[in-house]
Design a binder for these strands. Structure first.
Lengths: 375, 375
DNA sequence: AACCAGATCTAATACGTATTAGAGGAGGAC
DNA sequence: GTCCTCCTCTAATACGTATTAGATCTGGTT
């Protein structure tokens, strides 16, 4: 057995010495795929043998230093990704980003200033930590616009998962086509005879919400249903969706169908499920319900809501691919990609309930009596 | 608007030029924590300002090539972490590693050659990719010993989550004390009167399994129960745990309690649950059952098995802390830390069934008749 | 005036690799 | 013999940083 070598790892210089060639030759043999066929076979064998004997392995740092790239992609989330209550929502993105990154031969750098909420900033400590990576995939609902703008100013390559707008100009994103999906949902309801369709939107004015609202209006328009401002309701808190409120809408507004924008946690959908289970409001018997997105916590015993479903895996993959594409260009222009949602028929929409089609007072006592029906 | 800068990232040389100092000074200001107080405050400010203006961030590869530190910790898993069927098992580790890493002011580098199973090697393509990180946390059941050995040979700092042994010598790990936990479980069963306790172990000869077996023997020993080789059964495939097999053990071996090593997916525990639900074998009425670890997929409607529970969060945190400690030392000695499991009483063990205590033939026809009881 | 002692900064170098221009030799054509 | 081509290899350099020995300056002491 040879005496334990010095702790130092073998380098190409060591191999070169042992094989009686130059370091450059070693480099050509080891990693020069295309150029290495101009090396004589005997030399090649000698080098490979020496490399094997010395247990050589390439020094990644040196290689990427030379190349200017680290082969690292960053994943930055504007919201904590790991907490349990949002885990089902973000997990598919994570999974797919990680997979595709690996498939492309990159490693994934996970940025997370999890705890100190104030620290959750790209520009913590003055230095831009993101820049450790060659480029970055961004994720999260509550974006800090200034940070995005700063990234753009510095020409740092990044791709957002989800459509985002910034005053500074265009940025690259892979989004989901909420507009088309929502308007298709309205069309579907219209086909079933619904005309009083309530849109229950999130309070914050983010792009996903804006897009849904646009889809809602477009859908009404194409179905020839007039837009009624009172049928767009904001919901600040999932707890705000009470049986009473829903019954009020059904009763006094004549609503027969509700489009709901699901939140990232599962309370909203849970609330709906409870109403249905306890038969205080039944879907679709009393009212049709469709979700404008996936219910976040999907377990097999959950109700099969009518909804459209985000192709999260595909979105994440496309984002990674787009990012790597951008990295390859000298002066890349921002790109936008929009992916269609898939429609899930489910069982929570149906024809207009017989007594509830007319938006007049007649239906109100009916609903009021039903309210007492609980045990 | 300034003309679009060249795509090149700013370097310390750029900063130096702009601030009118040397590159060395920049390096001292940027990363020389201890030595940087010999720099005049005015110079320091000028450098920092220039760095901010240029959007500088350090080049990891260069720093690591030079031998410096990156404040990056790697997380390497020997098995795919993200696949859904193992997600509940590994998720807590991931979560805690990520949290603690962030808390310590490090970033997390996720290594994963997810798909190509053959590629799932630290030494893929000859390059030791891990080395971009200052140190690494390793995770996973089916370790490649050669790779561990290679890491040790190269003095790369790492900490394994879980006890691991390698011929080459000691390595650092944070483990869970399966021996004590298992022997305590045996003691508990013995206290309830059980003497014929079956140990259903995994087929592979990994450390966790070995430790459980040792705990099993020690527990028997301390309870004064003789060891019976036929009461240790290997289970290659979760599907191998059939009702018939279990009834055979109860009937002809006189088994009254079973210790089960849960697999990383949830099929084994599912199988048990089904037996119990369909009343073909009821726990603990027909036989006591205790799990030597957590059932992997824990949902609220799952049965509350008697078991012990791994402190996964704590393990992961300790691993990160240990790793950072190791990084601080010049020539660190391997460290081992063992953390106790917590006992979860559950409801799947009970006293010895009245008719099944004697391991003689009398019980066999009784069991055989029960076997027909299904609808 | 000569010397010294900080204080502050810089020049030079090493790290391991990839790349490129070109060196050196062999062989053939004229 | 001269020129040319092809083949194989090497010298030299750049990549961006950390580190260290020493340079330069400032102000004070003898």
């Amino acid at each position: 057995m040879p005496p334990p070598q010095s702790r130092r790892k073998a380098t190409q210089v060591d191999i070169a010495r042992r094989a009686g060639v130059s370091q450059a030759t070693v480099s050509l043999v080891i990693s020069g795929g295309a150029v290495s066929d101009q090396i004589a076979e005997s030399t090649r064998q000698a080098v490979l043998a020496a490399a094997a004997e010395l247990g050589y392995s390439v020094n990644v740092a040196a290689r990427s230093l030379k190349g200017g790239r680290n082969r690292l992609l960053g994943l930055y989330t504007f919201e904590p990704v790991f907490p349990t209550d949002q885990r089902d929502f973000y997990y598919p993105f994570l999974l797919a980003v990680e997979e595709e990154t690996a498939r492309q031969g990159y490693d994934l750098l996970l940025f997370s200033s999890v705890n100190a909420s104030a620290d959750r900033s790209i520009y913590a400590s003055g230095a831009n930590r993101l820049k450790l990576a060659d480029g970055c995939v961004l994720l999260g609902r509550n974006v800090r616009r200034e940070e995005l703008a700063a990234l753009m100013r510095e020409d740092f390559p990044f791709v957002f998962i989800g459509r985002r707008e910034v005053d500074e100009g265009e940025l690259s994103y892979v989004a989901v086509d909420y507009v088309t999906a929502t308007s298709a949902m309205v069309a579907e309801l219209s086909r079933l005879g619904h005309e009083r369709i309530l849109y229950l939107r999130a309070m914050e004015d983010t792009e996903p919400t804006r897009d849904r609202e646009e889809g809602y209006r477009r859908g009404l328009d194409e179905a020839g249903i007039p837009f009624d401002e009172s049928l767009v309701q904001g919901l600040a808190d999932p707890a705000g969706l009470s049986v009473e409120r829903l019954q009020h809408w059904i009763g006094s507004l004549g609503v027969t169908a509700v489009l709901i924008e699901p939140t990232e946690d599962d309370r909203l959908v849970q609330a709906l499920a409870v109403m249905d289970d306890t038969a205080r409001v039944r879907f679709p018997d009393d009212c049709s319900v469709a979700l404008l997105g996936d219910p976040p916590s999907w377990t097999s015993d959950l109700r099969d809501w009518t909804r459209f479903s985000l192709p999260r895996t595909q979105m994440a993959r496309e984002a990674v691919r787009m990012l790597i594409d951008l990295l390859g260009e000298v002066s890349p222009a921002p790109r936008q990609l929009s992916i269609p949602c898939s429609f899930v028929p489910g069982d929570s929409i149906g024809p207009v309930p017989s007594g509830g089609a007319q938006p007049d007072q007649a239906s109100r006592p009916d609903q009021a009596s039903r309210r007492r029906r609980e045990p």
